[in-house]
């Protein structure tokens, strides 16, 4: 059970991710950030609720839409921004960028540019934990787009067969890039795919950080106890397009977007809950938001001031 400080911490993390992503939008559209930017605005409750169930030495694998996972697993804002701008102080010395942030010290085995590409890597980390005799667990984050990658099913099969401490967490944001999930995904109930392997499988309200945290905590406990994997399908929504450049969003209606944003926003929902349960006042939450904005601003300044990597690093780190 969480205490007041922890409830507020969940709020702080969600607000931080949102402000971070909003800043990424600004940096990208101002042509300061190169490459591609996949924002997770609207999905904040999933990484925050899930990672709050983990220890620092537990692992995650992440996706191309992974800024929230990194931050929720403990990444520093300033080094995140530095990586996004390709600077030497970034988590990967500027060599990974937005889609490849990894931080071993925080158990982050890396975001991934291949949809579903880290599903088996997560299971391998689980196998490793088991072989090394630790009780570490791993959460594999992936989107609904990965549901139809064979690798995910291969990995779930082995995790179930070998009772690996792996949690398969699908962030179902309803769209795989520009295609509605329901139009390309067979079977009305996605969790049936997990149950087919004998994996306990649940649908979770991904806009409710406490619901995500509760389900993730049960899954983590099951994994630590040696009882194998869990499959969680967290229903959520990305408010922005597939990436910053996807501004038309012709594949969905403005009404649908409005409904999610106005009626199911994870941050507004948790704020309401905190206030109505006397864990915080509106003024407390405003302070949290102001602190987050300041931290984001400082992080951007740090990243802008950081130099690009020296050219001689281009041939370094090819072989360990």
């Amino acid at each position: 059970m969480l205490n007041t400080d922890q409830f507020i911490e969940l709020y702080r993390q969600m607000v931080t991710i949102r402000r971070f992503e909003e800043a990424v939008w600004e940096l990208y559209t101002a042509a300061i950030m190169p490459g591609l930017a996949h924002l997770s605005i609207g999905q904040e409750a999933v990484p925050v609720g899930a990672c709050a169930a983990l220890r620092r030495d537990d692992y995650i694998t992440s996706t191309h839409r992974g800024h929230g996972h990194c931050l929720a697993k403990g990444a520093r804002i300033d080094r995140m921004f530095a990586e996004l701008l390709g600077k030497v102080d970034g988590y990967c010395r500027g060599k990974g960028g937005s889609m490849h942030i990894a931080d071993q010290d925080m158990g982050n085995l890396g975001a991934n540019g291949i949809v579903g590409g880290s599903a088996a890597i997560a299971a391998g980390a689980g196998l490793s934990a088991k072989m090394r005799g630790t009780d570490q667990v791993v959460i594999s984050f992936f989107g609904d787009g990965a549901l139809n990658q064979g690798l995910l099913l291969e990995s779930m099969n082995m995790a179930a067969s070998w009772k690996l401490p792996a949690i398969y967490l699908c962030e179902n944001n309803q769209y795989g890039e520009y295609t509605p999930m329901v139009s390309v995904t067979a079977g009305a109930d996605i969790t049936a795919r997990g149950r087919a392997f004998g994996i306990p499988s649940f649908t979770v309200d991904g806009q409710d950080v406490l619901a995500v945290h509760a389900c993730a905590s049960e899954a983590v406990a099951r994994a630590r106890a040696g009882d194998g994997p869990t499959f969680l399908v967290c229903n959520t929504y990305r408010y922005r397009g597939h990436h910053v450049g996807d501004q038309l969003r012709a594949y969905r209606t403005r009404e649908e977007e409005k409904e999610w944003e106005e009626q199911r926003d994870p941050i507004a929902g948790h704020a309401e809950w905190l206030i109505s349960h006397n864990h915080a006042t509106p003024a407390d939450l405003e302070r949290v938001d102001a602190d987050a904005r300041r931290e984001i601003q400082e992080g951007i300044e740090f990243a802008k001031a950081s130099p690009f990597p020296p050219l001689e690093e281009v041939t370094e780190h090819v072989y360990a």
């Binding site: 590409g117 088996a120 391998g124 490793s128 064979g150 690798l151 291969e154 082995m158």
Partner: peptide, 18 residues
């Protein structure tokens, strides 16, 4: 199992973690 991509990924995950 006969899941070449999957077992390669599992080997990678194990190698990444010690």
């Amino acid at each position: 199992p006969i899941s070449e991509a999957g077992i390669a990924g599992i080997a990678i995950g194990a190698a990444l973690t010690g």
